[in-house]
Nucleic acid binder design. Structure first.
Length: 851
RNA sequence: GCCGAAGUGGCGGAACAGGCAGACGCGACGGUCUCAAACACCGUUGAGGGCAACCUCGUGCGGGUUCAAAUCCCGCCUUCGGCACCA
């Protein structure tokens, strides 16, 4: 476009229009749901709330702006859309800032929230700000405490000992605060110790089986698989071994083991206890004590990663004691090894080296016997090859038979499983059992910046919950870190010293605060009534609005947050607080935008891409559209601004087509002329067809969150319009319809430019101004999409040889005759014998098979 | 090591449900307009061959099924994400 022509219309300048529309939408209350309005279908759209780190980067835009497009798309379908935002405001970074720089965590947090609110507004996203939730506010965390008390009453909260990483100077350390292979404190460098503390747990394991059931919710398969594996249900049996009497001890102690293969019980040739097992000390013979104690001490210092490494050679020590196998009375040695974990099953195993790889490696390393008890049917008669086996036989074939198993020889493995469990049960030496990998949720944190756990410790009454009417237990406003990482609440006499609600005697407050995952396990309920003072949530609104229709957020929360949220919902349903047993009906996990270096974006890595400069240069609409166009939304990928100019050019062309349909491009010799052989009528028909076909495709793509192809299809429609610019088609009814559809389809994704062009369009027609975001989503005119002819590719032996344009409704026989007459086809067929003609995909393609 | 996801032009990516590989965009090259530019416009652009019409090859590698494979099956390799030696 030349300068003279360009000057006929305004340039597309996002900076001049975007802030204006953002203000207008705020005035209109576009983002605010009418929660009590029941005349329209509800749509609760939730996007994971953010930690207010203070640096809003393109990653936040990547997560939030497509979600905003979803919200706007649903509003255009007449739905009452609830699309709230909030801040996950408790947590470690605020505390680190306080320790390191002396800023109060609250000040740091609220300052960041202010910055993020401003940046979030620049996205042009129509959030429901009236429903905003900030979790560090007492009006929110009060209800964490309320919920905790309900859990406590229901037996879902309890106190137990748990091991933490401990620094003598800085107290409990989070995993990220333990650094280096030598495991030193991030702040003071002291070697990290282990310490057992009494802490609070929530009994998520009570819901293990229900959490395995995903029926009724539409969640991605990989997430369901990950949660299923995390819960890790194993069906097997518990078998009770007893310790054998010897010169040191009388024997008879029970050693319970969990096994998924009770059918291999006759193959148990030794036992292994976790180093932490309660009976280790008692079973260790005096002469073996120094070695065992050294081994246990070493295992304690190891990181879980080291201990769980498969690469490492197996280690272990013999205790000196023996155990008796409950099925055959055999005496087998008891070993202690770190490959058995205290936290899983019973912390002890029966080792069946012939049929378990880990046990096999251990047996070979320490020269322990190997006995085959399971064999494929055809090898069942062979002598025991245990001593010479090169690897464990871990087949779970239905055809395997038991061998070397006394009365059970010859039984099929599945039958033997049942028979052996039955015998154990009958003799009181075991039973069928289920084990889970899932452990109860440790919610105690030894930190200031979190929700105080509302209990006191009374000398007389013990653990006493703070009464509901005395909530919230507030964090003290002044906090003295004294430059250390240790929980300052412990030293805060004004906080700690209190009276017992029951006896009024002296008592000490709990100084542990809650894991921030508690905050995020129910925040979507609070969004519905954030200011409610007589309860955590409004039951009527919860009944009407929950479950959440669509939840979107990063896949990094696949297990913990999403599993805890499901647990909370089920527990709250059982407590009568909510109605539904699943929080999120449909889930979509986006990928992550990484830094240009391919690493996760973070301030410390210095690879954060600030959207502000891109917005200043291209406008929010271009940035939004570019992030959608980058690739499939669930994939993410390294950030690169390459190509953003192309998206900007697209919006520019839309702008030009809409405002100057009759202009011509000086750079194009064909400008203003229809393509050869095309009449105004056929061009108009083609344009209508393209517009409605695009509408059909784009509608589906919005619903399936396939934003990258959605943008591509809008580009195609825009290109079609642009091509006809300056011709007699421009300004025709067909042109006008295509332009209208393009703007409506663009509105959810690029809301400002669509709104601006819509306003000008209405003004040009002398119509009253109204927001495009209040318009109805258009309907496809199926008749316009139907085409008179279509092109059929013709293959010979699967190779493309020709294309033929035929009437849309042509019969197969006619098509075949036509195809066989084509010169190119005949050339390809020459010298071959025709075998058959395949009409594939309902006549979409013809393949001629020859010999 | 196990589990999950994925490997397609120079790049991001597209391809409904086995049916025309490379949509859309970037970059590059050539051109238009311009004193000069680009946040403007037009054209070309998978590789190789041919004056051309066209031909051959081509979706990580090796096999297979099929009239037809990026897509399904078997065996490998690589990358990313997650992690539990779970008995």
């Amino acid at each position: 476009m030349t300068i003279s022509e360009r000057s006929r219309i305004d340039r597309y300048e996002p900076a001049a229009i975007e802030p204006r529309w953002q203000e207008r939408w705020a005035e209109l209350g576009l983002g605010e749901a009418e929660l009590r309005d029941e005349s329209r279908p509800k749509y609760y759209l939730l996007t994971m709330y953010d930690y207010p780190s203070g640096d809003l980067h393109v990653g936040h835009w990547y997560v939030k702006t497509p979600t905003d497009a979803i919200a706007r798309f649903h509003r255009m379908h007449g739905e009452n859309v609830f699309f709230p935002v909030g801040f996950d405001a408790f947590g470690l970074p605020a505390e680190n800032a306080a320790i390191g720089r002396g800023v109060h965590p609250a000040e740091w947090t609220y300052r960041n929230i202010d910055t993020m609110r401003r940046q979030l507004r620049s996205m042009g996203a129509a959030f429901d700000w009236d429903s905003e939730v900030v979790t560090c506010d007492p009006s929110y965390y009060r209800w964490n405490q309320w919920l905790f008390l309900r859990f406590l009453e229901a037996g879902l909260a309890y106190r137990a000992s748990a091991t933490v990483d401990w620094c003598p100077n800085d107290g409990t350390l989070a995993r990220e605060q333990v650094e280096g292979a030598d495991r030193h404190c991030w702040r003071c460098g002291a070697p990290v110790e282990k310490r057992d503390l009494d802490q609070w747990f929530l009994r998520i394991t009570r819901y293990a089986d229900e959490l395995l059931d995903f029926s009724g919710i539409d969640w991605p398969e990989p997430i369901r698989v990950m949660q299923t594996n995390w819960i890790g249900r194993s069906d097997g049996a518990e078998a009770v071994f007893t310790t054998a009497a010897d010169e040191v001890q009388p024997g008879g102690d029970e050693l319970r083991v969990f096994t998924t293969r009770p059918d291999t019980l006759f193959g148990a040739t030794f036992m292994v206890l976790a180093p932490e097992h309660a009976l280790v000390e008692r079973l260790t013979h005096p002469e073996r004590r120094p070695e065992v104690e050294a081994y246990v001490a070493r295992a304690e210092r190891e990181t879980e990663i080291e201990r769980l490494s498969l690469e490492r050679e197996k280690t272990g020590v013999f205790s000196g004691s023996y155990a008796v196998n409950p099925v055959n009375g055999e005496r087998i040695p008891i070993w202690i090894a770190d490959y058995v974990l205290a936290g899983y099953g019973t912390g002890a195993i029966m080792a069946v080296p012939a049929h378990d790889e880990r046990d096999f490696a251990f047996a070979r390393r320490f020269g322990l016997p190997v006995r085959r008890v399971i064999a494929p049917r055809e090898l069942a008669g062979e002598p025991d090859d245990g001593p010479t086996m090169a690897q464990a036989y871990v087949s779970k074939s239905q055809d395997d038979l038991l061998v070397n198993s006394g009365p059970f020889d010859g039984l099929g493995a599945p039958a033997a499983f049942a028979a052996i469990v039955e015998r154990l049960s009958a003799e009181g030496r075991g039973r069928a059992a289920v084990s889970y990998r899932l452990r109860d949720w440790l919610i105690s944190r030894q930190r200031y910046w979190g929700t105080p756990i509302p209990v006191v410790y009374c000398e007389r009454d013990g653990i006493v919950p703070v009464p509901y009417d005395r909530l919230p237990v507030r964090l003290p406003e002044t906090v003295d870190y004294a430059g250390r990482g240790e929980n300052p609440l412990r030293r805060d006499a004004g906080f700690v010293e209190t009276t017992c609600p029951r006896c009024d005697g002296p008592a000490r407050r709990e100084t542990d605060t809650m894991d921030t995952f508690v905050d995020s396990s129910w925040y979507w309920y609070r969004y519905l009534s954030p200011g409610k003072t007589d309860g955590p949530l409004d039951r009527d609104l919860e009944l009407r609005w929950c479950p959440v229709d669509q939840y979107t957020g990063g896949a990094e929360h696949a297990v913990m947050h999403l599993l805890y949220s499901r647990f909370f919902t089920k527990a709250l349903a059982d407590l009568g607080v909510v109605h539904e047993r699943e929080p999120f009906r449909r889930l979509f996990n986006q990928g992550q935008v990484l830094g240009a270096d391919g690493e996760r974006m973070s301030k410390s890595r210095g690879n954060v891409q600030d959207p502000d400069e891109l917005v200043a240069r291209y406008g929010a609409d271009t940035v939004r559209l570019f992030l959608m166009f980058m690739g499939p939304w669930d994939q993410g990928g390294p950030w690169s601004p390459t190509g953003i100019g192309g998206v900007h050019r697209f919006l520019n062309r839309v702008w030009t087509s809409m405002l100057d349909p009759h202009g011509v491009e000086a750079g194009d010799p064909e400008a203003g002329r229809l393509p050869a052989g095309e009449s105004a009528e056929s061009a108009a028909r083609a344009l209508r067809s393209t517009a409605h076909r695009t509408l059909r495709t784009v509608t589906a793509e919005y619903l399936e969150f396939r934003f990258n192809t959605m943008v591509a299809h809008l580009m195609e429609l825009s290109n079609a319009l642009f091509r006809y610019r300056g011709t007699e088609v421009a300004g025709s009814a067909a042109w006008d319809e295509a332009a209208r559809l393009l703007l409506l389809m663009l509105a959810p994704a690029a809301p400002h430019v669509a709104e601006e062009l819509w306003a000008r369009r209405l003004a040009a027609r002398g119509e009253a101004g109204r927001s495009i975001h209040g318009e109805s989503w258009p309907a496809v005119d199926e008749a316009a999409v139907v085409e008179a002819t279509r092109e059929v590719p013709v293959q010979v032996n699967g190779k493309l040889r020709d294309r033929v344009v035929v009437p849309a409704g042509i019969a197969e026989a006619d098509l075949e005759r036509l195809v066989l007459e084509r010169a190119k086809v005949r050339a390809a067929l020459a010298g071959h014998q025709l075998v058959r003609v395949v009409h594939a995909g309902g006549g979409r393609l013809v393949n001629i098979v020859v010999r």
